[in-house]
Nucleic acid binder design. Structure first.
Lengths: 328, 328
DNA sequence: TTGCGCCTTGAAATCGATTTCGCGTACAGT
DNA sequence: ACTGTACGCGAAATCGATTTCAAGGCGCAA
C-alpha cells in the first residue's frame, strides 16, 4: 500500500506537505502540482484508518434498523445513503433484528470505530443511548421517538391511523378491525389510537376491543391476526393494517379465504412496493420512508458539522392513496 | 475514551501487558486478574481504529450488492450477516446501484478501511477487481460469476429457466414469452438460455426471438416489457419472469388488464416474499438467497483464516414451487 | 555451582496520517 | 531601511493498540 511518505519522497517534499495538499491548507501551487503528480503516478489512496485514528472521527455513519428485510426500512436506507454519500460519508447498515442487545452491540462498535454519528430506528423503548451520547456523538432517532433528548424524524402516525380508517368508513364498511404492531412500540400505539378515534367518532356503538389485534410487524404476524379475526363469530368487513408487512399477511389470508379486496375492505399504513394486486383495490397510506431517511441524514450531518441548537423533532406528513374500486 | 494506558496505570502494569491480556498471550494469572479488574472499573473498550492501523486488518467485511431494495439481496445480506456476526465480524452493506463506478468507490473504501474481505454481487461484467486482489484481500463473487480467479457462489440459472418454462408447458400453455434482465448480465443470459432450450424442445415451431424481452431487473422493467408483449398481434398466453421484481411488474400489468394468473400463465425465477396473490396461481422457482449469503460468508471467512486452496465455485440448487391452480 | 533455555514483562518501535511548533522568507506599512 | 505580519514548509509529536527486542528471573540439567 502506497503511503504519504512514498508520495512525499517522489514529489521531493515532506509528508506534512502531502497531507496539506489533500486537506486544503496553504501550499504553493508548484508543490501542489508536484504532489498531485506523484500521488497520481503512485495511485495513492490515503489510509483511512490512520486518518481516523489521528482525527478521532471518521466519515462513516451508522444506520441501525430493526428489520433489513422490510422494504420500508430499505427505502429509508436509500434516502440516508444518498444524502450521506453526496457529503462524502459512508453508511454502515446495522440490522438489530428488533433486539435491544444487538442494538447495543452495534452502538458499541460505532463508538469503537469512531463513527461520526448514528441514525437509529429503535427496537423498542428499552434502547439505551447514554453511553454513545456521553461520547458527544450525535444521534438522530428515525421512525420511532425515544425518551432521550436527541433529534428525531417521525411521521403523523395517529393521523395515518385515522385517515386509513376514515377511508374505509367512507367506502361504506361498518365493521372495521385493526391489526397493529407490538403495543409497546410508540408508532404502533399511535396508529391504533388513530383507528380507535375514527371508529368511535363514526360508530360509537362499535366494540373496538373486540376488533383490535396486536401482532409482530411481520408478514406472519399479519397472517395470524387476520386468521383470528376471520374466526370471530361476527368477522369484520374491513381491516386496517398497522404496517406494510402486516398488510401483506392480512391480504394473503383474505385471498386464500376467497375474500380478495374489496370484498373485505383493506387499508394499509405503509406502501406495498411489491404487491401484485390491482392497485385500485386497497387503500394505502404512503409513508415517507425515503424522505425520513433523507431528513434524518441531513440533520445528522448538520450536527456533525457542529450545529448545537436544541434538539428538534420533524414530523413528516403521509399521503393517502384511496382504493378506487367500489366495494364488491 | 479510556485507553490501554489508563488501564495499565490503574492495574500497575505496562500497556504491553494489557494488550497481551486481551490477545491471549502469556501473562501471569495475577496480572491478568489485575488488568481485567482495571478494565472493568474503567469500562474499557479497545480502540478498533488503533488496532486496525497496527494489525493492518479489521474484523469488517464489505458486502456489495446492486440493489438494496430488492428483497432477494436483503435476504442474502441476512445470510451473510448471520454468519459474519457469529464469527465476530461486522458487515458493511454497500449499494452499488448497479453502477460500476459506485462499485469501484466502495472497493476503494474497503481497501482504505483495511476491511478483511469483500463479498460482491457484481453490477455487470465490467467490474474491476484487480486492485483489491492485488492487496491480497479475499473476494467472493456471489450470485454472478466474474472473469477473475476468485471463489464464487452461484445457482443453476439455466436449469431454473428450463424448470420454470417446463412447468408452464406442462400446465398447457403454448405461447410462452420471456422477460429477462439485461442481456449482458450472465445470470440473465443463462436463465434466458434455459427458457429458450425448453421452448425449442417442446415446440420447435415457436419463434423465440419474437417472445423475448430484455429489461432492467426492476419492477418498472417488468411492467414495460409486459405491456409490449400484450401489444403484440398475437400476445403470449404465458410468461417467464427473469427475476422477482420483473415478475411483480408483469403480474401487476396482467392484473390491470384483467388477465390475472392463471388466465395468463406466470412463472417467476425468484421468490415473491411480499406478494398478495393467492400463492397457488403462480409458479415460483425459489432461489436460495439466504443460503448463498451463508455460503459466501463461510468461504470468505475461510480465506481470511488463511485457506489458500485454488478458487472454488459452489453451485446451489433451486427449488421449484409449481402453481397449483388449474389454467383459467 | 554454572550454564542453558523458557517464561514473563517493560521499553520502545511501529502502523500512516494529521497537526503543532518553529524557522525562514516575502511583503506591507511607516 | 526597518519592523511586523503572514505564509510556506519541514521536523517531530501525536492518535492508541500491537509487537519486537532485550532483560531479568526461575527451573532444570550437567
Amino acid at each position: 500500500m502506497v503511503t504519504i511518505y512514498d508520495v512525499a519522497e517522489l514529489a521531493g517534499v515532506s509528508p506534512a506537505t502531502v497531507s496539506r495538499v489533500f486537506n486544503g491548507t496553504s501550499v504553493s501551487d508548484q508543490k501542489v502540482a508536484a504532489v498531485r503528480a506523484a500521488a497520481a503516478t503512485l495511485n495513492f489512496t490515503p489510509n483511512r484508518t490512520a486518518r481516523t485514528l489521528r482525527r478521532q472521527s471518521s466519515e462513516v455513519i451508522a444506520l441501525v434498523i430493526p428489520d433489513i428485510e422490510n422494504p420500508y426500512f430499505t427505502e429509508m436506507a436509500r434516502g440516508v445513503e444518498d444524502v450521506a454519500s453526496e457529503a462524502g460519508y459512508s453508511v454502515v447498515l446495522c440490522n438489530s433484528d428488533a433486539q435491544t442487545e444487538k442494538e447495543a452491540t452495534y452502538l458499541r462498535i460505532a463508538m469503537a470505530e469512531h463513527m461520526s454519528g448514528v441514525i437509529i430506528a429503535t427496537a423498542d423503548e428499552g434502547t439505551r443511548l447514554d453511553e454513545i451520547l456521553a461520547t458527544g456523538r450525535p444521534v438522530v432517532a428515525v421512525d420511532r421517538a425515544t425518551s432521550y433528548d436527541v433529534d428525531g424524524v417521525v411521521m403523523a402516525n395517529r393521523a395515518a391511523g385515522t385517515a386509513a380508517t376514515q377511508d374505509l368508513i367512507n367506502a361504506g364498511y361498518r365493521r372495521i378491525a385493526y391489526i397493529g404492531g407490538p403495543e409497546h412500540i410508540d408508532t404502533a400505539a399511535e396508529r391504533a389510537a388513530g383507528w380507535r378515534s375514527a371508529l368511535a367518532a363514526a360508530m360509537p356503538e362499535a366494540d373496538a376491543d373486540e376488533l383490535v389485534r396486536f401482532a409482530t410487524f411481520r408478514v406472519d404476524g399479519g397472517r395470524a391476526a387476520m386468521e383470528e379475526l376471520l374466526a370471530l363469530p361476527e368477522p369484520p368487513d374491513a381491516v386496517v393494517a398497522g404496517n406494510n408487512l402486516i398488510g401483506v399477511g392480512a391480504i394473503q389470508v383474505l385471498t386464500e379465504h376467497g375474500l380478495t379486496p374489496p370484498k373485505v375492505g383493506v387499508a394499509v399504513i405503509g406502501s406495498l412496493p411489491f404487491t401484485t394486486l390491482s392497485p385500485t383495490a386497497v387503500t394505502v397510506v404512503k409513508l415517507p420512508a425515503r424522505h425520513m431517511g433523507v431528513t434524518a441524514a441531513r440533520m445528522l450531518l448538520e450536527r456533525i458539522g457542529g450545529d448545537s441548537q436544541p434538539a428538534r423533532t420533524v414530523v413528516l406528513r403521509n399521503e393517502i392513496q384511496p382504493a378506487r374500486a367500489a366495494r364488491g
